[in-house]
C-alpha cells in the first residue's frame, strides 16, 4: 500500500460562518478559552459588490500543514516535525518556547499554550486519525465545507474534488505548499 498523503479540501462557498468547527476543535483538543488560544478560525472577508448584488465570503482556516514548513525549518530542537503522511506536529516536551516558529509561520497558526507550556497548533486531530476517525472540525461541519482524505488514493473524495475543480492555496508566493486546498 502506498504511503498516505493527507489533505483537507475546503469549499468556502458552503461556509455559513456558524463556527461549529472552532467550537468542536476547542472541545476535542481542550484548547482553553482565551483570546489568543485557538487552532482554527473563520475570517469574515469584506463585503464585495454593490446593493442589490452583494457577496461575502467566509474563509475558515487553520495550520496549513505545509509541505515546505518554515516553522519546522527554524525549530532549533526538532520539536516541530512532520509525520510521513504530512501532519506537521509539535512535540511539547521538546519545545523551548523560542517562538521562532510563530514568527516564521506565514499563516499565524501557532500560539503559546499555557496548558502544555509549549507552542501549540492544529494537529490534524492526529489522535482521531489513528482511530480511523476524521478530524473534529471536518466531522462537525453541517454543510461539509471541509473534506479530509488521502491524496495518494485516486479514489478518495479529496482527489476527486481537486481533480474536478479549480483550487488555490493560501499565500502561494511563500512557497510553503500547503496541504489545505480551497476549491472554487
Amino acid at each position: 500500500m502506498s504511503q498516505q498523503r493527507y489533505a483537507i479540501v475546503l469549499d468556502t462557498r458552503k461556509c455559513l460562518n456558524c463556527k461549529a468547527c472552532t467550537v468542536a476543535c476547542k472541545f476535542e483538543n481542550d484548547v482553553p478559552v482565551e483570546d489568543e488560544a485557538y487552532r482554527i478560525w473563520v475570517t469574515e472577508m469584506p463585503l464585495t459588490g454593490r446593493f442589490p448584488y452583494l457577496h461575502q465570503e467566509f474563509q475558515p482556516s487553520q495550520c496549513q500543514h505545509c509541505e515546505n514548513a518554515p516553522c519546522e525549518k527554524v525549530c532549533p530542537t526538532r520539536a516541530t516535525f512532520t509525520t510521513e503522511a504530512g501532519a506537521v506536529l509539535v512535540d511539547y516536551d521538546k519545545c523551548i518556547l523560542c517562538k521562532a516558529c510563530m514568527v516564521a509561520c506565514p499563516y499565524d497558526a501557532r500560539f503559546v499554550s499555557l496548558e502544555h507550556k509549549a507552542v501549540e497548533k492544529c494537529t490534524l486531530c492526529i489522535h482521531r486519525l489513528q482511530e480511523g476517525r476524521e478530524p473534529a472540525c471536518v466531522e462537525t461541519c453541517p454543510t461539509k465545507v471541509r473534506v479530509f482524505g488521502d491524496l495518494n488514493d485516486p479514489k478518495s473524495e479529496v482527489s476527486r474534488l481537486l481533480g474536478s475543480s479549480n483550487s488555490y492555496r493560501l499565500k502561494p508566493e511563500k512557497n510553503t505548499r500547503p496541504r489545505l486546498y480551497y476549491v472554487t
Binding site: 525549518k73 527554524v74 525549530c75 532549533p76 530542537t77 526538532r78 520539536a79 521538546k94 519545545c95 523551548i96 518556547l97 523560542c98 521562532a100 503559546v112 507550556k117 509549549a118
Partner: peptide, 27 residues
C-alpha cells in the same frame, strides 16, 4: 528570560539539535 524553557534548551541543543535552524547556530 525570554525562552520559556532555557534549561531544556541546554540539553536539547546537544541531544536533538536541528542544524537547519539558524537559532542552533546562534547558540
Amino acid at each position: 528570560m525570554e525562552l520559556g524553557h532555557p534549561f531544556r534548551l541546554m540539553y536539547l541543543f546537544l541531544l536533538s539539535p536541528h542544524f537547519q535552524a539558524p537559532i542552533v547556530w546562534m547558540g
